[in-house]
Amino acid sequence: MTETIKGRGSRQYLPGRFEQTTVEAVDDGWEGAAEPMSGPDPARPRTEVREEAARGIISRNDSPDVGFSRSVNPYRGCEHGCSYCFARPSHAYLNLSPGLDFETKIFAKTNAPELLRREFSRRGYRPEPIALGINTDAYQPVERRLRLTRRLIEVMLECRHPFTLITKNALVERDLDLLQPLAAMDLVKVYFSVTTLDPHLSARLEPRAAAPHARLRAMERLHAAGVPVGVMFAPAIPWVNDHELEAVLEAARQAGAESAGYVLLRLPHEVAPLFRDWLQAHLPDRAEHVMSTLRQMRGGRDYESGFGTRMRGRGQYAELLEHRFVLARRRFGYDGLRPRPLDCSRFTAPRPDSPQGELF
């Protein structure tokens, strides 16, 4: 497949790294074009949502590169279709393509709210801030119908449990009635991932995410309602969007952001060939220059997974990017802010269900 697909970040069903056999459609000249392996109309792949009962819901990590130790992801796969998404390789564990399957075959953990409530009920549970929607966006399009993220937030509010969330979707405004009382108790912070201010570039990089102006507008409305907001310039891609770092931080500060961060483009496993293909489809004139610069920051490879360098890279270009970020953060007033920490002391374990119901 060589043509881009409207509304999709990938244009191929790249096999996962665990596949022992692969299938490739070939036109042998008989009966017209060969039937593609993925279905009768690969130019318009539809989104399939598959419900699943998860066995656990809180993931734990001890990575020094991220600012959280616990996370909850109500969905696997993401319809936003970000061409650079570091989570794409996770679909290979399901014997699905990290390419088009990742953005068209979405798994919804329909029992996620019940599992979270059960975790909070465990004897000896100790609260720490939970990062909601880290691997894939908790506010992707299917959330409008399934409302799993909203139900998870309802559990957080019931139990007074602190959490953060990061999203590319203005749909987060829907849950302002929950986020506002949580914010009043220092129990929530909302981060918006803003990759570019250019709607045309955004439509190609992250085709089903909210437009940049919609994210900034949502940020401004949450801030006006008293919900702490921040911005992540992620990923920073050399020669594609890195020149916008200062503009994004400035626009976010004007919208009320009180914290800012950035992450260098990460290309683990199948993400590297998928992103190279995206470059050839959308920015062929600079594709080699982009990859060459990335390799300079990754020790000559497409990606380095080591702690300490995977989020920032190394070398002169990486140092320049970090220096620009530090200066921009200072220039736009982020350094003078002192956001309030999340409060873990308010946690209250959920009341056990009783066959007699509740009298009070």
Rank of each mutant, 00 (worst) to 15 (best):
A184L: 02
E3I: 02
A349I: 07
N111I: 02
G16D: 13
R145W: 10
L216F: 02
L249S: 06
A184W: 00
A225K: 02
F192Y: 14
A214V: 13
I153T: 06
V26A: 09
S354D: 14
T164Q: 15
Q180S: 03
P228G: 06
P89D: 06
R46D: 11
R330H: 11
P235C: 03
I237V: 09
L245H: 10
H223G: 08
K168S: 04
E158W: 03
P162A: 14
A252G: 13
P127F: 08
E258Y: 00
G32V: 01
R298F: 10
A34Q: 00
R60Q: 12
R147L: 08
I106K: 07
L279V: 03
D65N: 10
G300K: 11
I153M: 14
F233E: 08
N111G: 09
M291W: 09
R117M: 02
P341Y: 01
W278R: 03
Y75C: 05
R217D: 15
C344I: 11
L265E: 13
E288F: 02
E250Q: 15
A349Y: 09
F233Y: 14
P284M: 01
E206G: 05
L182K: 01
H269S: 13
F325D: 13
F120Y: 12
A218C: 03
L245E: 10
G306H: 11
T196I: 06
F18G: 06
P89K: 05
G124T: 03
F325R: 05
T149W: 00
A260C: 09
V26R: 11
A53H: 13
R50S: 12
T110E: 13
V172P: 00
R76L: 14
I106Q: 09
Y13I: 07
E158R: 04
G16L: 06
R204Y: 01
H223Y: 03
A272Q: 15
A209I: 10
A138R: 12
G67R: 13
N135E: 12
G256K: 08
H80S: 11
A251W: 06
A210G: 13
G299M: 06
S69W: 10
F360Q: 02
N169E: 09
R88A: 06
R215C: 00
L337C: 07
L176G: 07
E173Y: 04
A54T: 01
A170N: 04
A257F: 04
E258V: 12
L320R: 15
G16I: 03
H243M: 06
I153W: 07
L205W: 08
L320T: 12
G336K: 09
L245M: 15
E19L: 07
E31I: 10
T21P: 02
V172E: 00
F102N: 12
K168E: 01
M311T: 12
A224Q: 07
L249P: 03
E246G: 01
A214C: 07
E288A: 13
G29M: 00
R346K: 07
R340E: 05
V172K: 00
P42Q: 11
F233K: 05
